[in-house]
């Protein structure tokens, strides 16, 4: 408020308001969503061509016979369900997805807590380092894990033998291989959980903990009564999202075990690849992968509900 004169702004040129365009606000609102739709169009086109159409095509394919000439209805599905090797795939997929996600979530939660207690610049560095597994292409890191697990050159087995212990066939027996696959998936996915939970932790107001401390809560009680309820939403959404991704996982199993030993670690995706592309029975491969659909659709429904809720927040 330096000079006391009214000279300030309106002295010089006159502002000519932009030529007034007559158009109702409604039209304006409509123009807004038209703009939005237009911007979306390429994406929608892409999705229709590469997602919607193939999905229906998959359903069509799954109802053909091996030569893709005759229509066989649901025979492929019925056949698959009657095969013990496929029953094993269903079991293994569920077991893998659920165990891996629980491990990732737990590990991510613990890591996030540890990180949360590191203050200042160090936290940033640790966070960066811990996120690395998630950034390396999964197929390459899996390859490295494979090397670590290798029976003869394995770093693990080498260490074991150094202590005078027998080497372990990490990928050679059913359960060892299953656990190995889950370990690698956890190693790859936990950083994502960690980073999300860390952000959520940071958003919990400090006063809540202080209030709880004054009310006499122990560290454990703070975790149960404050941290978990406050993080409920983010835990839910990350777990759901991760379940979808983990269910559909391909890379790890393909590289690490390629379904072996004796098809005991196959997931839907790898089995479908095996049957559909490698053995050339495309219809049956399609039906294998379609078994994922109901499971994923259920999970997607819940994710979508969250997204809807969130975009409602945006539009209000």
């Amino acid at each position: 408020m330096a000079d006391g004169s009214t000279m300030a702004i309106d002295a010089g040129t006159t502002t000519s308001p932009a030529p007034r365009r007559v158009g109702s606000l409604k039209k304006l609102a409509r123009r807004r969503s038209t703009t939005a739709l237009l911007l979306c169009a390429p994406l929608i086109l892409l999705i229709v061509c590469l997602k919607v159409y193939p999905t229906f095509y998959a359903i069509f394919l799954s109802m053909l016979d091996r030569k893709m000439e005759n229509f066989v209805g649901l025979n492929n599905f019925i056949f698959l369900l009657s095969r013990p090797s496929f029953q094993l795939v269903i079991f293994q997929s569920c077991f893998f997805a659920i165990t891996a996600v629980v491990m990732k979530a737990t590990l991510g939660f613990i890591l996030a807590h540890l990180m949360h207690n590191i203050r200042g610049k160090n936290q940033r560095i640790w966070r960066g380092l811990l996120l690395v597994p998630w950034v390396i292409p999964l197929s390459l890191s899996t390859l490295t894990w494979w090397w670590l697990f290798d029976p003869s050159y394995s770093a693990f087995n080498w260490t074991l033998s150094w202590f005078g212990l027998d080497s372990i066939p990490f990928l050679g027996t059913t359960w060892n291989a299953r656990i190995a696959v889950i370990v690698v998936n956890t190693w790859f996915g936990a950083p994502f959980f960690m980073i999300m939970y860390l952000a959520a932790l940071k958003s919990v107001p400090e006063q809540l903990y202080e209030a709880a401390a004054i009310d006499g809560a122990t560290a454990w009680q703070k975790l149960i009564y404050i941290t978990l309820p406050m993080m409920r939403n983010i835990i839910l959404i990350t777990v759901l999202y991760s379940l979808i991704v983990t269910f559909a996982d391909f890379d790890i199993v393909r590289i690490l075990t390629n379904g072996g030993p004796q098809d005991s670690t196959h997931l839907f995706a790898t089995y479908a690849f095996n049957v559909g592309i490698e053995s050339g029975n495309i219809p049956r491969g399609a039906s294998v992968s379609l078994f994922m659909f109901p499971i994923l659709a259920t999970l997607a429904f819940f994710v979508l509900r969250d997204v809807l809720k969130r975009s409602k927040e945006i539009s209000t």
Binding site: T15, P17, P19, R20, V22, G23, L25
Partner: peptide, 10 residues
């Protein structure tokens, strides 16, 4: 100004 968009209301 009912139908005038905000930018043109000056």
């Amino acid at each position: 100004v009912n139908d005038v968009p905000p930018r043109d209301r000056d």
